[in-house]
């Protein structure tokens, strides 16, 4: 198999994860190394502590990504980094490193939108062509579809994201972040559904009511039943809004990407919701669901192949970069 000749480096550092990946222009993932910052149980991610973690692990993660891929800095055609959205101090670690590599080794530099990374890597790995995208991660809960040179938003959370809901719930019952897999295990042991606010407004949804209600009744209910009820309520809301978008857009594929895509119960619900509208569900493989360097490296290639890149002095970060403002250079 022709694995391709152009190699690019992608650096991811928006939140918990510091990741680096080397990929070819044909989409072969030559390496994908990551190191995840884990705050103490019961507390959230502190941007300063996370960025300190990233600065400490960055050199070894990047070195390993290169050596596993069997390339040196000189072989790279470009370096891409996550420019937003995310936590400012964390973003700066990746951007600063990318700028250093770019100027020292004289390589083009490419700022990449983190969410576009999740979506485009998903397109590559699932083979989806024109899907309704369900993007669910720490930073995003959005329904998207491609419209011309943009990913357009068809529905989103009005307040916190699904990832934040699960992490905040996890913290409230004393679990470490990211809490996704632990909450999923607890939920499997839940037996009784506790009624929680179910808030769908048009194609948008709101999760903040769930966390307030959970905090109010936390002493009265078991963690298992609460985990079960939080998942059932939050996932049903997402499945319903996905159905609304499907009924509107008539897409034949639904693609799920982002860290929460790893949840089995959510996949099951989205699968059933999709088939009600004759659409096929495609889910990003679990190994690439969470934040990783490959999502950045791949979008780097999409820009590079279309001649879009810049110089190190133009590197920037934008903590609140919206996905529907990103100009896509590829079709």
């Amino acid at each position: 198999m022709d694995r391709g000749r152009i190699v690019g480096l992608g650096i991811e550092s928006t939140a918990h994860t510091f990741g680096a990946s080397v990929m070819t222009e044909k989409g072969a993932i030559l390496s994908n190394v990551k190191d995840v910052y884990r705050p103490p149980a019961g507390s959230g991610i502190h941007p300063r502590d996370a960025s300190r973690h990233h600065s400490e692990v960055a050199p070894s993660v990047i070195k390993r990504a290169l050596s596993e891929a069997g390339v040196s800095f000189g072989d790279l055609s470009f370096v891409a980094y996550s420019a937003g959205p995310g936590l400012g101090p964390c973003l700066k670690v990746g951007a600063t490193l990318a700028r250093f590599i770019s100027s020292y080794y004289r390589k083009p530099i490419i700022p990449v939108h983190h969410g576009v990374g999740h979506v485009e890597l998903g397109m590559l790995l699932t083979g989806a062509v024109d899907p309704l995208v369900v993007l669910i991660s720490g930073g995003h809960t959005m329904l998207l579809a491609r419209a011309g040179k943009r990913w357009r938003v068809f529905g989103e959370t009005l307040d916190i994201t699904l990832g934040q809901l699960i992490d905040q719930f996890g913290r409230a019952i004393g679990l470490p972040s990211p809490a996704g897999p632990l909450v999923e295990d607890l939920a499997k042991k839940g037996r009784r559904y506790v009624s929680l606010p179910y808030i769908v407004k048009g194609n948008d949804l709101s999760y903040s009511g769930i966390i307030s209600e959970v905090k109010r009744i936390i002493k009265k209910e078991s963690p298992e039943d609460l985990a079960f009820s939080v998942q059932e309520t939050a996932f049903s809301m997402l499945a319903e809004t996905s159905e609304r978008a499907l009924a509107l857009l008539k897409k034949s594929e639904v693609m799920v990407v982002g860290g929460v895509a790893a949840n089995t119960r959510l996949r099951e619900m989205l699968d059933a919701a999709s088939s009600r509208h004759g659409a096929q569900l495609k889910v990003v493989p679990p190994a690439y669901a969470g934040d990783c360097g490959a999502q950045i490296a791949w979008v780097g290639h999409l820009y590079f192949l279309n001649g879009v890149y810049t110089k190190p002095e133009n590197a920037w970060v934008d903590q609140s970069w919206r996905i529907d403002e990103v100009d896509l250079a590829w079709s």
Binding site: Y193, S195, Y198, E232, T233, S236, A239, E240, E268, M269, D271, A272, A273, R276
Partner: peptide, 13 residues
């Protein structure tokens, strides 16, 4: 009825 929702939630909604 929505097959993917648990019945308590489905019926309530």
């Amino acid at each position: 009825s929505k097959p993917y929702m648990i019945s308590e939630l489905d019926e309530r909604l």
